[in-house]
Simulated assay, not measured.
Amino acid sequence: MWDSFKKLLGLGPKVPRISPKEAQEKLRQGAVLIDVRTPLERKLSKIPGSQGLPLAELAKRWESLPKDKPIICQCESGSRSQQAAEFLAEKGFEAYNLAGGISAWQAAGLPVKKGDIKR
């Protein structure tokens, strides 16, 4: 209950929101990009080099992430990834949220791998 109260007051960890260009630079320097969308969303499109770790599984699998590298969280628009980045920051990670998610990444002209799902 205290954690919920802290979040309401904005007392939780402050996680930086970074632009796609800033994220790209951090990735060049060794950061890890975690895609917290669902597996189906990742089949439709994904950022090359990203690792899939759905938000629903993060609480069970966060310990598999490297503690010695910055973690950039990404979703479709930046909402779910904000939750993921805050969770990881609480666990001691250097975490960032990709502002605008994969949509902003693509709008910035950065590479996105499209899936082959037939509609």
Rank of each mutant, 00 (worst) to 15 (best):
107 A>P: 00
90 E>Q: 14
24 Q>K: 15
78 G>Y: 07
38 T>R: 07
91 K>C: 06
20 P>H: 03
7 K>H: 12
27 L>R: 11
84 A>C: 11
14 K>P: 04
26 K>Y: 05
79 S>H: 11
109 G>S: 10
72 I>Q: 08
62 W>G: 01
21 K>M: 01
51 Q>W: 00
16 P>N: 14
21 K>Y: 08
53 L>M: 14
105 W>E: 05
17 R>Y: 00
73 C>I: 00
119 R>D: 12
47 I>T: 00
35 D>A: 03
93 F>I: 13
30 G>S: 03
5 F>N: 13
84 A>H: 05
115 G>I: 06
92 G>A: 12
61 R>Q: 02
78 G>N: 11
99 A>V: 03
40 L>F: 11
10 G>C: 13
38 T>P: 01
70 P>N: 10
5 F>C: 10
76 E>G: 15
109 G>Y: 05
32 V>W: 02
106 Q>N: 10
54 P>E: 03
111 P>K: 14
10 G>R: 09
2 W>M: 10
110 L>N: 11
85 A>V: 05
25 E>H: 14
97 N>W: 06
88 L>Q: 06
82 Q>F: 05
78 G>F: 06
63 E>A: 15
57 E>V: 04
31 A>V: 12
26 K>P: 08
30 G>W: 00
37 R>H: 08
100 G>Q: 02
59 A>S: 13
9 L>P: 05
2 W>D: 04
50 S>G: 12
25 E>D: 11
47 I>F: 00
18 I>T: 11
84 A>S: 10
55 L>R: 10
23 A>I: 13
86 E>Q: 03
119 R>I: 04
35 D>C: 13
110 L>S: 12
26 K>Q: 07
95 A>W: 01
94 E>N: 05
73 C>T: 15
70 P>D: 05
48 P>M: 02
69 K>N: 05
117 I>C: 09
94 E>K: 09
104 A>V: 04
52 G>K: 01
31 A>E: 03
79 S>I: 06
93 F>V: 12
37 R>G: 08
59 A>C: 01
31 A>G: 06
77 S>I: 11
16 P>Y: 09
96 Y>H: 09
14 K>T: 14
36 V>R: 03
19 S>Q: 12
39 P>Y: 06
32 V>A: 13
32 V>G: 12
115 G>P: 11
15 V>E: 07
2 W>R: 13
95 A>H: 06
72 I>T: 03
94 E>V: 01
104 A>G: 06
48 P>K: 03
7 K>P: 09
97 N>Q: 09
91 K>S: 09
49 G>E: 01
90 E>L: 07
103 S>E: 07
91 K>Q: 13
38 T>K: 08
45 S>K: 08
112 V>S: 03
49 G>N: 07
96 Y>T: 04
22 E>H: 09
35 D>Q: 09
63 E>H: 10
17 R>K: 14
36 V>M: 04
8 L>D: 11
5 F>L: 08
91 K>N: 02
29 Q>K: 14
20 P>Y: 00
6 K>A: 07
83 Q>I: 04
31 A>D: 03
105 W>Q: 10
119 R>A: 08
16 P>H: 15
105 W>G: 15
